[in-house]
């Protein structure tokens, strides 16, 4: 049992709230939200942090690692302050999704999974976000969805986040 160093009390309280959703003997059910909460705090999921989540939920570290590496939206490496995921799946591609991605690549001077020189942005290729009607769509740090991202709106967004 390592004593928590990275996981803040605030985070633990959030996790405790998630735990109330599940049967008492099924704490593991909260692991996805626990990791999401931890990631919101740290920007990514270093192994020590995953270990703490494992201890907090009383599950094997490797089982936490399995989850963290299975779901796309967990960051296993440090990211730019803003992770921008652009959907390039077919329906979006038909309505400018790929063009939007290309526009961002040249504007930020990075390719997929790369970090901008100023450390502010990481660009990643997203899969269908269930918002194909609003193409081009992108996500900022997993949680903020931006729709109909024309070049003008992309410029505005980058300005705002800079």
């Amino acid at each position: 049992m390592s004593t928590s160093a990275l996981l803040s009390d605030a985070a633990k309280r959030k996790i405790d709230r998630e735990l109330t959703k599940y049967p008492a003997d099924q704490k593991q059910s909260a692991v996805m939200s626990a990791l999401a909460i931890a990631q919101d705090e740290h920007g990514w999921l270093p192994n020590e942090l995953q270990d703490e989540v494992a201890n907090y939920l009383g599950m094997p570290s490797i089982a936490v690692y399995e989850v963290a590496t299975f779901y796309n939206m967990y960051n296993l490496k440090p990211m730019g302050r803003h992770k921008i995921s652009v959907c390039t799946n077919l329906p979006c591609a038909f309505s400018g999704g790929v063009d939007a991605a290309e526009y961002l690549k040249s504007k930020l001077g990075v390719d997929w999974k790369e970090l901008t020189a100023d450390g502010k942005f990481t660009l990643v290729e997203g899969e269908c976000m269930g918002a194909c009607g609003d193409a081009p769509v992108l996500l900022v740090n997993n949680k903020r969805m931006c729709s109909f991202m024309s070049p003008e709106k992309l410029d505005k967004l980058i300005e705002e986040l800079k």
């Binding site: 959703k21 704490k27 990791l35 779901y71 899969e127 997993n142």
Partner: peptide, 21 residues
């Protein structure tokens, strides 16, 4: 219960596994 980026969790039994953590 929220997912976190895995299309396969739409498959009903994968979804159940996912709820089980």
């Amino acid at each position: 219960h929220h997912g976190f980026g895995a299309y396969i969790c739409g498959e009903e039994t994968a979804l159940l596994e996912s709820i089980e953590g």
